[in-house]
Amino acid sequence: MKMRSLQELGAMRDALARAQREAAEAARRAAEEKARADRERRQFELAVGVVKPLKVAARADLRPEPPAAHPRQKELDEARALAEAMSDEVDVESLLLTDDGLGFRRPGVSLDVLGQLRKGKWSIQDQLDLHGLRRDEAREAVGAFIRGAEQRGLRCLRVIHGKGHGSPGREPVLKAKVHKWLAQRQEVIAFAQAAGPQGGAGAVIVLLAA
């Protein structure tokens, strides 16, 4: 019985030693594999430099972009409405005040406001120069200018129509037409000939509704 126990103990000792040798061999092979991989990586880096992984880019959409929408019909409609709303044939002479200088005011606008316009008391926030424009171009420019100023919340504007020095008969061709156009714009509540420093007879100061 004692001999058998010694044999079993010897077998266990041999098995344990064998397992330790196998574990040591596996660890050695793993270390050698790691060292080999490290050497190869270093050799590669020395040959091509440091390598960074590429970012995965999204797939390119090669379809052509549709052309931007152009509201051509809307522009035509607005131009037509503008031409109809600002006629050259409207008689506004009876609305113009000429007692002490050209002026126009709608009902409810005091003479004091008109007087301040004439004297240049209002601060001009924007201006439009019509020099070099034909009649239709000037009419469209005035309408767009008034509409844009109203959308931006401006109150006091200057429209420069010129004194007519370069016109036949040295008469300001656009002056009377500008007065008619302005009087037909509902945004305009008053206008007056500019004071000398602001353009005199060659310009008109326009007041828009608040």
Score class of each variant (00 low, 15 high):
Asp88Ala: 13
Gly143Ala: 12
Glu93Asp: 06
Gly143Cys: 07
Arg139Asp: 04
Ala141Phe: 09
Arg135Thr: 14
Leu95Trp: 12
Phe104Arg: 02
Glu137Asp: 15
Arg118Tyr: 03
Glu137Phe: 09
Lys121Asn: 12
Arg105Trp: 02
Asp100Phe: 10
Trp122His: 12
Asp100Ser: 06
Ser110Gln: 07
Lys121Thr: 06
Ile124Trp: 08
Ser87Gly: 10
Ile124Val: 15
Glu93Thr: 03
Asp99Gln: 09
Lys119Leu: 05
Asp100Thr: 11
Ala141His: 10
Arg135Trp: 10
Gly143Met: 02
Ala141Gln: 06
Arg105Leu: 14
Asp99Glu: 14
Val109Asn: 01
Asp99Thr: 12
Gly120Trp: 01
Ala141Pro: 11
Asp112Thr: 01
Gly103Glu: 01
Gly120Gln: 04
Glu140Asp: 11
Gln116Cys: 12
Arg118Val: 05
Ser94Gln: 04
Gln125Ile: 03
Val142Gln: 13
Leu111Thr: 11
Val113Met: 06
Glu89Val: 10
Leu96Ile: 14
Trp122Arg: 03
Arg134Gly: 14
Glu89Met: 08
Asp129Gly: 05
Ala141Ser: 14
Leu133Glu: 08
Leu102Cys: 02
Pro107Phe: 03
Arg106Ala: 05
Arg105Val: 01
Glu89Ser: 11
Gln116Pro: 00
Gln127Glu: 15
Gly120Cys: 07
Leu133Cys: 09
Arg139Met: 09
His131Lys: 05
Ser94Asp: 11
Gly101Thr: 04
Arg139Gly: 06
Trp122Ala: 04
Glu137His: 10
Leu111Met: 13
Asp126Ser: 14
Asp136Ala: 15
Val142His: 08
Leu96Lys: 09
Val142Leu: 04
